[in-house]
């Protein structure tokens, strides 16, 4: 089937009102604030499909975001949603999860929010193996505030606060997540929608601290300064430079725009969650008079 045919068929069968994504979105909040060519929207699409595929009760699904462009995801999702202060999505999610363990709690935020101001919370939630899922849209910049350098901005890249090119070393986020104790760690780009959707489903179906990094173009504030004309071109670059590698080590998941970039699932393992460990410990100490917390 040719490209045109697909488009025609889509137009015929799927009127906007019937888009399966719609029921997950607050349509009364559309249009969204994201720029043309931004990758955040397509990750949200993947997320919604993953939630459907994983057959998660959306009544028991909460989404938490920090501040920034990706921080707006919570506001557009028709779920119990928390738009927190800058960097604090993870501790907010911690409170929601611990106070009501029935909830599936997803943190959806950006690289600056999660790893600069919020970095300390990330490492501790991973260490505890708190049963929450972190989706980080990494666009290498602070989009909302005008394109400043973040902990993931590659060296040499121009940012508004690195006008002569970034000279700081960057985080390898998957390696960080693994070393802190995450039980699921993967990396994709906003262009790898099939793999991303599958990976999100896999993570959502698992207990414990999961982390997915998603490279995403920011044509307005990253691309414009760095001679990547539009979002599509950035996506194509991602497609070209990124290689999916099975069984890759997170240690290999560096980001060097001049070399091959590794994508894939780096960690998929089991470890007792915070709450399981807590319940086991208290049960051991108190015996039958202890009622396991958050378990039926």
């Amino acid at each position: 089937m040719g490209k045109t045919d697909t488009l025609n068929k889509t137009a015929e069968v799927r009127t906007p009102a019937e888009n399966p994504v719609d029921k997950y979105l607050r349509m009364d909040r559309m249009p969204h604030i994201w720029c043309p060519g931004c990758g955040i929207g397509s990750t949200v699409n993947c997320f919604v499909r993953a939630v459907e595929d994983a057959m998660i009760d959306i009544k028991k699904l909460a989404i938490v975001s920090g501040i920034g462009c990706t921080g707006r995801v919570a506001g557009y999702m028709n779920l119990d949603s928390f738009h927190t202060t800058h960097g604090r999505a993870i501790p907010m999610a911690t409170g929601v999860k611990l106070a009501n363990p029935e909830m599936n709690v997803v943190v959806y935020s950006g690289d600056g929010d999660l790893f600069a101001i919020g970095g300390n919370h990330f490492i501790h939630a991973a260490r505890r193996n708190l049963d929450i899922k972190i989706i980080c849209v990494n666009n290498f910049t602070y989009g909302m505030t005008g394109g400043q350098v973040t902990p993931t901005t590659p060296q040499g890249i121009i940012a508004s606060t690195m006008p002569y090119g970034n000279f700081e070393h960057t985080f390898n986020l998957p390696f960080l997540a693994e070393s802190c104790g995450a039980v699921y760690v993967a990396r994709w780009t906003a262009a790898h929608v099939k793999q991303l959707t599958k990976s999100m489903k896999e993570m959502m179906s698992k207990k414990g601290f999961g982390f997915i990094e998603i490279f995403s173009p920011c044509p307005t504030l990253f691309g414009r300064r760095n001679k990547i004309a539009d979002g599509l071109e950035h996506m194509i670059q991602f497609k070209d430079k990124c290689k999916i590698k099975k069984g890759a080590s997170a240690k290999e998941a560096t980001f060097d725009p001049d070399n091959e970039i590794v994508l894939g699932t780096f960690v998929n393992t089991e470890r007792k969650t915070f709450m399981e460990s807590m319940n086991d410990r208290y049960e051991k100490v108190f015996g039958p008079k202890y009622v396991r917390y958050g378990e039926e």
């Binding site: 928390f82 911690t94 929601v96 999860k97």
Partner: peptide, 9 residues
């Protein structure tokens, strides 16, 4: 902020 989450949950 964890207590804010706890309260809403």
């Amino acid at each position: 902020i964890a207590i804010c989450g706890g309260s809403w949950a």
